[in-house]
């Protein structure tokens, strides 16, 4: 029999995930160039720091969302979960007057517990992620208002609390680099979670679940257990976001939070993580989050009305997903 014409797969020059990251990175550079040319105020150190500071909260939430989206799920509760954990920190630090480390731990633990609940609803009770986390989003929004008595909780008894986000450990050491702690926390967290995704079992199962959940199950892996663990980890990360925003505002604002989940998901999508699951990266997500804050900051500097900024964000999200579709069609 003659050799058959099977096209053997050649390794592509760049994996499609890498392509999307490159595209996102190029977009970021273009935006930076455009705004620096359009306005002399843009490339000031203070403004760059403001952009980074603004990215920190959304970036951390987007990291949480990335984990869940890679498994093929979605988490709509990250925004109100962030607020809920901020309120928990307020209760521990202001109502109960406990020490700051206790408040920090309580916020992260509360986030992980809520993620555990979401994950259990999805993995064990088989409620679709969209519905389960939509429910959690509303429950947490309500609970935040109930616990706080609908009023902001100020951290007046914990004077060092604002330092958590706005202070600069690096600035204290290297005065030329006054990078706020919140930004450092974002970058350190991104490195850690990136490592977890690529180098650990938990990360491997993230991709495996999003790629073919049934295959994971048939391989004898405790698929449901790992899924719950991933949602819990994402919840804990939302707790970090809660601490960052509470620290920046020096208060837990119970009415805040709804809408943040969409910004986070937008950053993930712009960064090239597939909503279908199975592929994605933290680096992409961070670039995605930066694109969003650079865009909003730049438009503000150019005195574009806030209403229009929202419109532009929407267009960017659709364009990013469309670019992803085009590439997928070509690859497929």
């Amino acid at each position: 029999m003659t050799a058959t014409p099977i096209a053997t797969a050649k390794p592509r020059l760049l994996a499609s995930g890498a392509q999307q990251k490159l595209l996102a990175f190029a977009s970021l550079i273009v935006l930076l160039l455009f705004f620096s040319l359009a306005s002399p105020n843009f490339l000031q150190t203070a403004n760059i720091l403001a952009i980074l500071q603004a990215t920190s909260v959304n970036g951390v939430l987007a990291i949480a969302a990335t984990l869940v989206i890679i498994t093929g799920g979605i988490d709509l509760s990250v925004g109100t979960l962030m607020t809920f954990t901020a309120v928990i920190a307020g209760v521990v630090l202001t109502f109960w007057g406990l020490a700051m480390p206790v408040g920090i731990l309580a916020a992260i633990a509360a986030g992980a517990a809520c993620g555990f609940i979401s994950g259990s609803l999805i993995a064990r009770m088989k409620i679709p992620p969209f519905i389960a986390t939509l429910g959690m989003m509303l429950i947490l929004k309500g609970l935040s208002l109930v616990i706080s008595g609908t009023k902001p909780i100020y951290f007046n008894d914990t004077p060092s609390f604002p330092q958590l986000s706005t202070g600069s450990l690096i600035g204290a050491l290297v005065p030329a680099l006054p990078v706020p702690n919140g930004v450092m926390i974002l970058f350190i967290l991104a490195l850690i979670i990136s490592w977890v995704l690529n180098r650990t079992t938990l990360g491997r199962y993230c991709f495996a679940l999003g790629s073919n959940e049934e295959a994971v199950r048939l391989s004898g892996v405790n698929a449901d257990g790992w899924k719950v663990a991933i949602y819990a980890l994402a919840g804990g990360i939302c707790g970090i976001a809660g601490l960052l925003i509470a620290s920046r505002l020096n208060s837990a604002q119970p009415a805040l939070g709804q809408g943040y989940e969409l910004d986070a998901i937008a950053a993930v999508v712009i960064g090239g993580t597939s909503l279908a699951g199975g592929r994605g990266s933290i680096l992409g997500t961070i670039i995605g989050a930066l694109i969003m804050s650079v865009l909003l900051n730049g438009l503000r500097i150019l005195s574009v009305a806030q209403e229009w900024q929202t419109v532009v964000t929407g267009v960017i999200i659709i364009a990013a997903v469309y670019a992803d579709m085009l590439r997928r069609r070509r690859a497929g």
């Binding site: 650990t200 491997r204 495996a208 790629s211 073919n212 295959a215 391989s219 199975g278 592929r279």
Partner: peptide
């Protein structure tokens, strides 16, 4: 029953990955 986004080796050893401490 394969996971298309993972590599061949990752598919073969899914659930039995050799790992050090810390996973």
């Amino acid at each position: 029953a394969l996971m298309p986004d993972l590599t061949v080796a990752q598919n073969i050893f899914i659930g039995r990955e050799p790992r050090s401490r810390w996973g």
